[in-house]
């Protein structure tokens, strides 16, 4: 008994702190949601109130009626999904050999990937615009996917390499002894034990593309315009339409929240991965 009590207390404190941390982190988001639910005129009340004093869906109805917003949501989704797939397709093999076949070439390549990530996007926007224009890919889904993938690949490579580092080289060697080709070992043996790493990498690629603003602003105009641009348009020279903007932002965050919920299992799957390794 004397031994158990302090342990429970520690657990309790840990739970309490975790809860507090999570709540304080959620507060700004909750405020965004609660703001979206206020009538437009109350949004910038002085002094502000956290909870709506009057509930109203007028921001949501006005946003759904906004020309181009549903299309922009769809564009964002298509671009983000394609970016995620393409990034994984390009980054995962490179990360694999960088982690498991460590040699001068792969080391240099990782360094190179790191360097490409350092280029400030603001300075690449203009040259990228010219490239896309030459390729005839301006204002196309493919053009934006390529641009987003160019920023997502380095991060995906670094993340995947870090996850592959955790894979014992013996696993690959054992697979090869069992008759797998190098590619077979990669595809059939190593990849399947890393759902957690893949899920997290996919998630980050997806989110980066979903939320990207600068390239989307420059490289799309009408037919492939993504939602962050439309959301930014609420902030016009004639004032910031806070109500509709928060409503659009809330709606825009919902699909990603869903994606995260779906991937929760994979993220927790890291546990299984640890077991494999042990």
């Amino acid at each position: 008994m004397a031994d158990r009590a302090p342990i429970d207390l520690t657990k309790l404190i840990i739970h309490a702190v975790a809860l507090l941390l999570v709540l304080s982190y959620a507060l700004p988001y909750l405020y965004l949601v609660s703001t979206a639910l206020k009538p437009a005129v109350d949004v910038q009340q002085i002094p502000p109130s956290f909870l709506p004093q009057r509930l109203s869906l007028e921001n949501f109805t006005s946003v759904i009626g906004t020309v181009g917003l549903p299309e922009a949501f769809l564009n964002s989704a298509i671009v983000a999904v394609l970016t995620t797939l393409l990034s994984l397709l390009i980054a995962v093999p490179a990360a694999y050999v960088s982690a498991l076949y460590r040699r001068r070439l792969t080391m240099l390549f990782m360094l190179f990937a790191l360097i490409t990530r350092m280029v400030p996007a603001v300075s690449l926007g203009v040259p990228l615009f010219q490239i896309m224009k030459t390729l005839g890919l301006l204002d196309t889904t493919i053009g934006l996917v390529l641009a987003h993938t160019s920023t997502a690949v380095p991060l995906a490579m670094l993340l995947m390499a870090a996850f592959f580092e955790g894979v014992p080289k013996e696993l690959e060697e054992a697979a090869r002894v069992d008759g797998c080709t190098r590619f077979g070992a990669f595809w059939h043996i190593v990849l399947p034990v890393m759902p957690s790493g893949l899920a997290i990498t996919a998630l980050f690629s997806f989110i980066a593309s979903w939320n990207e603003f600068l390239y989307a602003l420059l490289l799309t105009s009408e037919s492939s315009k993504t939602a962050p641009i439309v959301i930014a348009e609420f902030n016009s020279v004639y004032g910031l339409a806070w109500g509709p903007m928060t409503a659009a932002a809330v709606l825009y965050s919902l699909p990603v929240i869903l994606v995260t919920l779906v991937l929760q299992k994979q993220i927790v799957g890291g546990l299984t991965f640890g077991a494999v390794k042990g």
């Binding site: 999570v22 700004p28 939320n211 962050p228 825009y252 929240i257 929760q264």
Partner: peptide
């Protein structure tokens, strides 16, 4: 906890 903690990730930098 983790799901809620991940919320800000969903928000675009603009917003």
């Amino acid at each position: 906890h983790r799901t809620i903690f991940a919320l800000p990730l969903m928000i675009s930098p603009i917003v």
